[in-house]
Amino acid sequence: MKNRNRKAVCIMSGGMDSTLAAYMMQEQGYEIIAVHFNYDQRTQQKELQCFESIASVLQVQEKYVLDIDFFKQLGASALTDKNIDVPTDGLEEGVPVTYVPFRNGIFLSMAAAIAEKESAEVIAIGVVEEDSSGYPDCREDYITAMQRAINLGTKDETNIEIKMPLVHLKKSEIVREALKLHVPLEFTWSCYKNEDKACGVCDSCRLRLAGFEKAGVKDPIAYL
Results as ranks from 00 to 15, higher is better:
Asn3Cys: 05
Arg6Ile: 00
Lys7Asn: 07
Lys7Val: 01
Cys10Trp: 10
Ile11Ala: 08
Ser13Thr: 00
Tyr30Arg: 09
Glu31Arg: 14
Ile33His: 14
Ala34Arg: 10
Ala34Val: 05
His36Tyr: 08
Tyr39Ser: 02
Tyr39Gln: 04
Asp40Pro: 00
Arg42Pro: 04
Arg42Thr: 04
Gln45Leu: 13
Gln45Pro: 01
Leu48Cys: 06
Cys50Ile: 00
Val57Leu: 05
Gln59Pro: 01
Lys63Asn: 04
Lys63Ile: 01
Leu66Ser: 09
Ile68His: 09
Phe70Ala: 14
Phe71Lys: 09
Phe71Glu: 00
Lys72Gly: 01
Gln73Lys: 15
Ser77Pro: 01
Ser77Cys: 03
Leu79His: 05
Leu79Ala: 07
Asp81Ser: 07
Ile84Tyr: 10
Val86Glu: 07
Pro87Asn: 14
Thr88Arg: 12
Thr88Met: 11
Thr88Ala: 03
Gly90Glu: 12
Leu91Met: 12
Gly94Val: 02
Val95Ile: 15
Pro96Thr: 07
Val97Trp: 00
Tyr99Trp: 14
Val100Phe: 08
Pro101Ile: 14
Pro101Ser: 14
Phe102Lys: 15
Arg103Ile: 00
Asn104Ser: 02
Phe107Asn: 10
Met110Cys: 14
Met110Trp: 15
Ile114Arg: 03
Ala115Asn: 04
Lys117Asp: 04
Ser119Cys: 05
Val122His: 10
Ile125Ser: 12
Val128Leu: 01
Glu129Tyr: 04
Glu129Ala: 04
Glu130Pro: 07
Asp131Phe: 08
Ser132Ala: 05
Ser133Ala: 08
Gly134Val: 00
Asp137Met: 05
Asp141Ala: 15
Ile143Trp: 12
Ile143Ala: 12
Ala145Gln: 13
Gln147Asp: 07
Arg148Val: 09
Ala149Pro: 07
Ala149Asn: 12
Asn151Lys: 06
Thr154Asn: 01
Lys155Thr: 05
Asp156Ala: 10
Asp156Tyr: 11
Glu157Trp: 13
Glu157Ile: 11
Asn159Ile: 08
Glu161Met: 06
Glu161Thr: 13
Ile162Thr: 05
Lys163Val: 12
Pro165Ser: 01
His168Asn: 11
Leu169Phe: 15
Lys171Phe: 09
Val175Gln: 09
Val175Leu: 04
Val175Phe: 12
Arg176Asp: 04
Lys180Trp: 09
Lys180Ala: 11
Val183Gly: 07
Pro184Asn: 12
Pro184Trp: 06
Pro184Val: 09
Leu185Pro: 05
Glu186Val: 08
Glu186Met: 03
Trp189Gly: 05
Trp189Arg: 13
Trp189Asn: 03
Tyr192Ile: 03
Lys193Leu: 07
Glu195Ser: 13
Glu195Asp: 12
Ala198Met: 14
Ala198Asn: 13
Cys199Thr: 09
Val201Asp: 15
Cys202Met: 06
Ser204Thr: 15
Ser204Pro: 10
Arg206Lys: 14
Leu207Tyr: 15
Leu209Ile: 14
Leu209Glu: 05
Ala210Thr: 01
Lys214Asp: 08
Ala215Arg: 06
Gly216Cys: 02
Gly216Phe: 07
Lys218Ile: 14
Asp219Trp: 13
Pro220Val: 00
Pro220His: 03
Ala222Cys: 08
Tyr223Pro: 09
Tyr223Phe: 10
Leu224His: 06
